[in-house]
Design a protein around this nucleic acid. Sequence first.
DNA 1: GCAACTATGGCAACCGGTTGCCAAAGCCTG
DNA 2: CAGGCTTTGGCAACCGGTTGCCATAGTTGC
Lengths: 403, 403
Amino acid sequence: MPPARRTRATHQDGSRPSRRTTDREAAPRSQRRQPPRSNETPTIHEVAARCGVAASTVSRAFSRPERVSAATRERILAVAEQMGYRPNPIARALPSGRTKTLALLVPDITNPFFLGLIRGAEKAAAASEHTLVLADTEESSETEQVVLERLTRAVDGFVLASPRMSDVRLRQAYASAPLVVVNRRVAPVPGVLIDSAPGTRAIAEHLASLGHERIAYLAGPRASWSDQRRWRALQAVARQRGLHVVRLGPLAPTVDAGVAAADALLLEDVTAAVTFNDLLAIGVLRRLRARGISVPDQISVAGCDDIFGADFCHPPLTTLTAPIEVAGRTAVELLLGMLRSGVRDRVQEPAASDGLDPSFAGKAESRRIVVLPTRLTIRDSTGAAPAESHPQTTANVRHTAPA
Amino acid sequence: MPPARRTRATHQDGSRPSRRTTDREAAPRSQRRQPPRSNETPTIHEVAARCGVAASTVSRAFSRPERVSAATRERILAVAEQMGYRPNPIARALPSGRTKTLALLVPDITNPFFLGLIRGAEKAAAASEHTLVLADTEESSETEQVVLERLTRAVDGFVLASPRMSDVRLRQAYASAPLVVVNRRVAPVPGVLIDSAPGTRAIAEHLASLGHERIAYLAGPRASWSDQRRWRALQAVARQRGLHVVRLGPLAPTVDAGVAAADALLLEDVTAAVTFNDLLAIGVLRRLRARGISVPDQISVAGCDDIFGADFCHPPLTTLTAPIEVAGRTAVELLLGMLRSGVRDRVQEPAASDGLDPSFAGKAESRRIVVLPTRLTIRDSTGAAPAESHPQTTANVRHTAPA
DNA sequence: GCAACTATGGCAACCGGTTGCCAAAGCCTG
DNA sequence: CAGGCTTTGGCAACCGGTTGCCATAGTTGC
């Protein structure tokens, strides 16, 4: 790509011609700067020149006003304003190492669940004057790795939403960059958990009280922490109440997968289905409708998350309402907290002459894991279990409308 | 915020003690660098030291391999790999001015329409190894302004989705940063337009052919270019076919606004409603359902955009399917094209000694505006106009189910 | 009236790469 | 074997800010 290079060259030399000196007898190191270029936004040096002060003074007028006399400061600020000076964020980031940027990695932007997360994270980031970088990792741990690497040092920290990478890798990542995780629990890594276990239990009891005894669980991605939690919670209630639960999957957490899974669901001898998330539930609903099977009369369906759309699909979906947006916000706040306190307790080697106050670590520890509750939202997709019993129902159903 | 400052100081001096020299008899300018710090990721200088070459050689081994002999290059690459060297993107961005980052500004992340846009933009950015920064401007032209300013020079260019700022401001913005716009047409600013005018005409004709003669348009935000296009298209068909159209609004493009507008809609003597977007339509649907009014038997509703959810709401929504994701992708590609060609034809003053090839301008001009078509997707929310005539219908409707 | 102290501003190193230019070394050619 | 050309690598300036340290001027105290 020689042209690109060329551009760069132009930038440094072409557009500021004759600034360079041949150095063996170099010009005195002062007054090397050129007069302001036209056009482009001015630098601190140009402002300084116009004011007859040193660049450092201009810098201080902005970042440490008390170090500059009132008169000088006023003058500098006025001139800067008038010249339209804006500090260059890149240049500022270089010495400090802080970019005021955070990255949010999601497995699939398509999924409205993550939309809520993005929204919350963006709000929180904006509120503290940070910029949010968004990356889709395509449900792949490799992509997560690549993105993480590409963005390290370009952002101050990461929020990993439902990461798919292994625990080991996650710990490694945590060792090399400030990072919080959403919906994943891995030893020292701070995170936000939407705990759907109690909610899942509530769903199961809701169904049980409606007379359902045989329930299917449509499982999500194998690597999902939430999926495991939900399945376990379901099993626990089943044991306790003498229900029969079967697990179908793992499935991709998408509408299409739900559509496809609905047929498999009908082969099972169940009267209700609980799905890993709302997308699956919506897919199931759609397919059941297409096959002429009535929800909730013939079968009940409950989702999870309460995403956009769950309340206006048909029938409106009984689901577990998750504080998704809050989770996004909380994750960012947690991350910012870590950055502020400067504590990244993942001490590797104590870094000899490093003057970090170790007492901090304990305090910051307190809120390293935030657990957010869910609540059951009952709508119209769940109802009393069909009157007649076992294989009967599904056999009927199966032959009502073959496709 | 003295602590923050302190951190920074630590970074420069504390952690690399005694590097500084008091300068009046300065140490010889060479061998000023310190031995590698532990822990942190190594810099190019550390790699160079380990290899016994100059930093510049290491730099070239990466960015201009042909400038370094094969033997040296291999050695450097090996050592760098082994030390875990990663170029610092910030440092790289400083001289070049290029950050490989693009910003996408949307008026409201909440709106699933923009979700599609985000998705497309993210894909395209990732495909060309760029990072995407996301900002919500909260439907406010001031926020747009602020964000634009904050991000200038931190990103290489902007995609402004449905910007709310005035034409004048938009041109100014275009003069100071590479920028493309979505769904807005302002003289020299390149952009992607989803042209819903023909589609809106198609909707109107669809409704006309179903016997509808009186149609309401639920308008979107005043500053929306698309809104104007749609309203004009509707009026045009109305004139042509002798239909009667009324305009309600402007309304916020949200479900809630649709819910609220439904009641106003029922006061009008119409048999069909066309809404600015699907969110409004979904809101209307919901309210009509709550009031026991049957769609499409008593009134037909058509939306616009075909967002996530439009196909599984109840009844499934007749709408204008817009290539939203394509729009996002195209916008980013357009922007990248501008950046690559280096042409920003918004010549202000010809910049005297600036060696830009002016012949480029003409060529890049060719695809400065991309127009994307929409198509009508007929689902179940539109149907034949109710049999009996004018005020009759709505009068009936209005008193069926008071709330 | 002189020493000690403070407020203010400048100098230059530094963040971590990139690149123009130069020089030394290697390679031919005649 | 001398002179010219090509490779290869180093030097140092540069991107645009930030900040430790020093110098100077001004202030205060005794």
